[in-house]
Structure formats: structure tokens, C-alpha cells
Design a binder for these strands. Structure first.
Lengths: 248, 248
DNA sequence: CGATGAATTGAACCAACTCAAACATAGTGG
DNA sequence: CCACTATGTTTGAGTTGGTTCAATTCATCG
């Protein structure tokens, strides 16, 4: 099931919606020009696999829009999501040519891909990119550690609340809205994908979603659109302390 | 409970046992000289806290010997280990002056500390250090993702086997021994710390250790010294596939 | 040798899982 | 327009792996 490569009109970096958050955030105009020359867009539809674990991967990329997940699968089929890539997040590892995880588009996704070899060269030479990549990787490590607390110690209800708050916050920040009071957004994940994120079964996810709805912590319009009447109320359900493990 | 600063004789970088694995691995002699000028050793005894979450942290460090853990604690006392630092691992984040996690010495630990401000400056200027730090951070992110699979999807028995195999492998690589056939090592963690690592209770850890012993997967001499008669047998218990998610 | 902290073991319990069935929604095509 | 899938979601009932609480054993050390 190879992903055919479509010719997609490329945006210029200057107009890019994630210009100031992505790996290129600190680049100057001349550096952007260099990036323009090694970049190409790829589009994936919801459900499509971007790369399979073990596949050769000759690019790295920024997520421009949409949501993609990194997932590990055990022989007997148990699956655990280990990364959730939202717009501006970085995909791939320079210096590695084989994907260690399945990468799947959760929604329609647009990637800004950079050919790996020249990108690697760029990193070696260009501090603005490599420094930014280090910063983003450290942020991801922090997020992974929060996630570990969630997986290891939180209850099902707390896990759901935590996931919703994470998505709500990222979504709000993308739209430059505050994440307090009433907040609403589209869930980019199926119940099954939520279960894979949280280390639960999809039945448990569904039950806890119903419970949160019953308790007026969330409202559902359709299966995917979620309204949080009071963000603080949701935060109370996450198990995190008030200052919220908010890392600076 | 401040950690008094002892005057500790410093080794020269050239003689350092982790010289070629730590953040300084790629440095040249003149760069090492620079590092020498901003480094100092600190020693911690098993059980001592290196820094508390929320504390100001004016250094970053390499673990020279011993084992330290990063732990998150929830308000009600639930604890999850989110990092295990073995010799050559890096502690702290440049550009962050407040520790996000408790750092505790699991065994006696020797740290090679670098004053944060000058280290930060060094990173900004010196590619050999910042590139190495990026590489180490990416490795840590991979490890965190393996850990997430463990926390989210593995059974108690698989969790224990996985932890033992991780420690056995790191220990072997440190001593330049192969990790196959019969392997033996000292557990640097109490049952409680193992539980915090694995997202289990200490009772479950103890029960599963007994079960693995009963099934001849491990042998115990005292509570801490462990012999694995056949490393492959242990690997079979981890739930990982044969090629072992071994990332290149 | 008692005492202290760490580890083991037992028994009852429960949160999340498994298996099974019903329901919802959006397409598809006759 | 409705029947007919296909896919995703909810709900129910019974089971279970890991927890909780409570003793007991082990090891070390002053």
C-alpha cells in the first residue's frame, strides 16, 4: 500500500502557519531559502499510514496541519501510542534511516518534508536549526515523562481528563485562544486511538467519556466535537496539581 | 535538608571512565580544558536527594558512577519514576533553572557538575557538545517511548523482566561484557523504586520476582544481587519481539 | 541480641478487562 | 427513498490481574 506522491502546491515558508513554532522557528530568510530548496509537501488522509515501523525513511518533516500518531505494536497485537504529533511538531530523527514506530495520520495531515541527507547536513552546520531541534526534543521528552506518569499511575477517569486537557490546550494555543472558561474543539482521535494513547481498552474509554458527560465535565455534540463548560473543572479531574506540572 | 558541598578531588577528563559516552564524548582537548574550568564533583549517598522538584538548579551534570532516579509525585502521594540515570547519562536541562522532578540517588552517586550559565554558553557556541547533547536527548526519548509501552501495555511479569534486561544490558555494556548466556549484576533499586519505575506496587514486584525465581528465569543471592542463567530466557519474558525493538 | 528497615507472603477486594450485544451514523447502490 | 453495509460507539454482565491491608520473615547493624 505505497503512498503515491502527489504534486502539491507548496506554500512559501514566509506564509507558513507554523513558521514560528516549528523546527525552522529561528531561521533567518537566507536559511529559509535553503530549506525551501530541500522541502516538499505530502498529504495524507485520515487513517493512512505515513510510514511503517521498520520502513526506510528518507525524510524528516514538520506537521503543518492535522494530527498524526506514533504507535508501537507488540507481537500479539497489543498497541501503545508513544507520540502524538500536532501542527508544528517534528517527525523523524536525523541520523536514523529506519522508522522505529508506525506513523499514522489520525486526521487529514499535511507534512512539510525535508530530504534527510541535506537536512542532516544543515543541522551539522546551522546552529539555528540544531538548537531549535534540541529545544523541541527536550520539550518532547518532558511531555513523554508527563505521559509516563499518566500511564503508570493515573486512573481511567484521570487519564481521559488529562488527554482532553492536553488536546484542548494545544488546540487553543494554535488558535491563540485562552484555555479557560468554556472551551470547545474537535477530537482528532477515535475511541480506539484514545485507548492506545492511554493504555486502556476502547470500552473503558467509552465508559469514562460517558461518565464525564453524565457529571457535566464535558458535553458531546456528535462523537467528535467536545465542549468543556469549565476548563478548571476538567483540570480538577486530571489528578495534576493546580500549578499543573507546568514546565517553563 | 541542604546537601553540603564537599571538597572532592576531581579527576581529569582524560582519565574519566565515561569520557567517551557522556555529553563530552566528542570534545577535543582544548574543549575539555574549557569544561575542566567549569566543572566540579559532587558525591551523594544512596537515598540522598540531589534536588527536589521545584528547587532552583544552577548546574547540569554527568553521572560518573552510581544510579539516580527522576521521580514525579502526585498530591496524594502516588509516585512514578520517569528517568533512570546510569553512568554517562546527563542530568538537567540547559535553559531551565528549576528542577521539574525529584532527583534521588539510588546508590552512592558521583556527579560531574557544570555550572549552568557557562555550560549554556558553551552549548550555544560549541557544536561538539550541543550535537552530542541532541543525540543523547533523542536516545532518551526513544527509551522513554519503550518505557511508555511497558507502562501502558505490559503485564507485571513482563515489566519486571523488561526492567531486569535493561539494567543487565546497561551494566554489561559499561563493563564491556556481552549480554548473553549467564549474566549477573547488582540491582541498584529497592523493590519500592522498582515499583515506581514500573507503575506497580512493591508487593506485586516482590511477588513477580519470586515467580521468576521459582521459574528459574533469575537467581537471587541476597536481595540485590541477581544472576540470569540464560539471558535469552529472560528476553522471552519481556514481551518484546526477538529483534527487540533494538533501535540503531 | 534486639531493633529497624526491607522484603515476602496471604487473603479479600476492586478497577479495568473480556466477551457479547445493541446502537448510531454515514455511505452506497438498487 | 429505503434497504444494506461498514465502521465506530455505547452499554451490559461476568472475570481477573493487580491492589490493599495485614502479618510474617529476613538481613544488617549498633
Amino acid at each position: 500500500m505505497p503512498n503515491r506522491q502527489l504534486a502539491i502546491p507548496q506554500q512559501e515558508c514566509a506564509d507558513c502557519p507554523i513558521r514560528h513554532r516549528a523546527v525552522c522557528a529561528r531561521c533567518e530568510t537566507d536559511e529559509l531559502e535553503h530549506l525551501e530548496s530541500i522541502k516538499y509537501y505530502r498529504k495524507f488522509e485520515a487513517g493512512q499510514t505515513v510510514v511503517w515501523a521498520g520502513d526506510k525513511m528518507d525524510f524528516v518533516a514538520s506537521v503543518i496541519e492535522g494530527v498524526a500518531s506514533l504507535t508501537q505494536t507488540m507481537e500479539d497485537g497489543r498497541r501503545q501510542m508513544v507520540g502524538l504529533l500536532l501542527p508544528s511538531d517534528f517527525l523523524g530523527r536525523p541520523n536514523r534511516d529506519t522508522a522505529p514506530y508506525d506513523v499514522v495520520a489520525s486526521t487529514d495531515v499535511m507534512l512539510c518534508c525535508f530530504r534527510r541527507a541535506p537536512f542532516q547536513k544543515l543541522i551539522a552546520e546551522n546552529a539555528n536549526i540544531s538548537q531549535r531541534l534540541l529545544e523541541m526534543t527536550l520539550d518532547e521528552l518532558d511531555a513523554a515523562r508527563e505521559w509516563m506518569l499518566l500511564l503508570g499511575r493515573k486512573t481511567a477517569r484521570e487519564k481521559i481528563a488529562s488527554l482532553l486537557s492536553i488536546i484542548a490546550r494545544r488546540d487553543a494555543s494554535l488558535k491563540d485562544l485562552p484555555s479557560k472558561g468554556e472551551v470547545s474543539f474537535d477530537l482528532p482521535l477515535t475511541r480506539e486511538a484514545m485507548a492506545d494513547y492511554l493504555g486502556l481498552t476502547l470500552e473503558t474509554v467509552s465508559r469514562q467519556m460517558s461518565a464525564l458527560k453524565r457529571d457535566d465535565v464535558i458535553r458531546l455534540e456528535g462523537k467528535r466535537h467536545i465542549t468543556i463548560p469549565d476548563f478548571d473543572l476538567l483540570m480538577d479531574e486530571t489528578g495534576d496539581d493546580a500549578d499543573g506540572g507546568m514546565l517553563v
